[in-house]
Computed example of a mutant assay.
Amino acid sequence: MKDDWKLVVLGGGTGLSVLLKGLKRYTSDLTAVVTVSDDGGSSGRLRTEMGVLPPGDIRNCLVALAETETLMDKVFQHRFKTMSSLNGHNLGNLILVAMAEITGDFITAIKEISKVLAVRGRVIPSTLEHVVLGAWMEDGNTVLGETAIRNYGGRIRKLFLVPDTCEPVPDTLEAIRKADAVILGPGSLYTSVLPNLLVKGIKEAIEESPGITFYVSNIMTEKGETDGYTAFDHVQVINEHLGRQIIDYVVANDGVIDEMRLKRYREENAVPVKIDKEKIEKLGIKVIQADLVSDDELAWHDPYKLARVIIDVLATIP
């Protein structure tokens, strides 16, 4: 089997790092394009107080792509629990910010830390501009800020970025145009996947790419973002935001989620995402169903099951 697939994965949050952990088994030509609209937690505090890009999702991806589970990986994921201003901050976030100050820019900082962690692949912010995620809600209101959107409680009509002319990192467009596959998700539809696609030039680069495009549907609906959404609804939202269809394959879970985990999700009014296979296929999109559930306490994707499904599809394409 080919071992030099050129893969580009776009997203943020936990979902992106989970997929990267699996894909690094199959290729080193792996590019993670990470959303930078996060304004919560340690990342949000550093963004507000120091005017830096939010480092959290980038840190998670770097650790996911690290060659081995080393002490340095644990160092980068260490979170302070102390009665001081450090409380809640992640050490890896602070190291990324410090390295950016030392080297003079964020891209160089990521490259230097990638060497320390022996990263297999590369991690790129979707833009170097300080963007704010905004949403027009179905009730007519406008909400600014990723955290505010999550907590608003209403249905989202459409997202936008401020500024809406933010430029991508050139390496991102080059990687997409040369990719054998571009993979969207898994991750929060509105706050992890779509923000990357709204950056100027990225959707056009995906269209121009000779490779195929996957969308990895979430296993569970997400409170405040996709309540009641099916996999078809997720795809429709992406199409509506882009004004075109770029997805070739939808990867969806059909594995069983045990009652104990379902009970936890019901407390957040979250349910398994229904696939709606026939409706998706009417759009000309192929649907790949598989048992993708991990053995973790939460109903997350198993990194190795998910990566295997994607690689198996690629192996069938001449």
Results as ranks from 00 to 15, higher is better:
Ser85Lys: 10
Phe76Asp: 01
Thr48Ser: 14
His78Val: 05
Ser43Phe: 04
Gln77Ala: 09
Met50Gly: 08
Thr82Arg: 14
Val75Ala: 08
His89Leu: 06
Ile95Tyr: 03
Val97Leu: 00
Ser85Val: 07
Arg79Ala: 09
Glu49Trp: 12
Met50Cys: 11
Gly41Val: 05
Glu49Ala: 15
Ser42His: 03
Gly56Tyr: 01
Leu91Gly: 04
Glu101Ile: 03
Ala66Pro: 08
Lys81Glu: 15
Val52Ala: 08
Ile102Leu: 11
Asp105Pro: 10
Gly44Phe: 03
Ala98Cys: 12
Leu71Gly: 11
Ile107Met: 01
Gly44Pro: 03
Lys81Cys: 13
His89Gln: 10
Asn93His: 05
Asp73Ser: 15
Leu91Thr: 08
Leu86Lys: 11
Leu53Ala: 07
Ser43Leu: 04
Ala100Arg: 02
Ala66Ile: 05
Val52Asp: 03
Ser85His: 11
Leu62Tyr: 08
Leu94Asn: 02
Gln77Thr: 14
Ala109His: 04
Phe106His: 07
His78Leu: 05
Asn93Glu: 05
Glu67Lys: 08
Leu94His: 07
His78Asn: 10
Gly40Met: 05
Ile95Ser: 02
Val75Gln: 05
Leu65Thr: 02
Gly41Gln: 04
His78Arg: 10
Arg47Gln: 13
Leu53Asp: 06
Gly44Trp: 01
Leu53Cys: 07
Lys74Met: 05
Gly51Phe: 02
Thr103Gly: 09
Asp73Ile: 02
Glu69Ala: 13
Gln77Glu: 13
Asn60Asp: 13
Ile102Asp: 09
Leu91Pro: 01
Thr48Asp: 15
Leu94Phe: 06
Gly40Pro: 00
Thr70Asn: 12
Glu49Ile: 13
Gly104Ser: 08
Ile58Gly: 00
Asn90Thr: 12
Lys74Gly: 12
Leu62Cys: 03
Asp38Lys: 13
Leu46Trp: 02
Val75Cys: 00
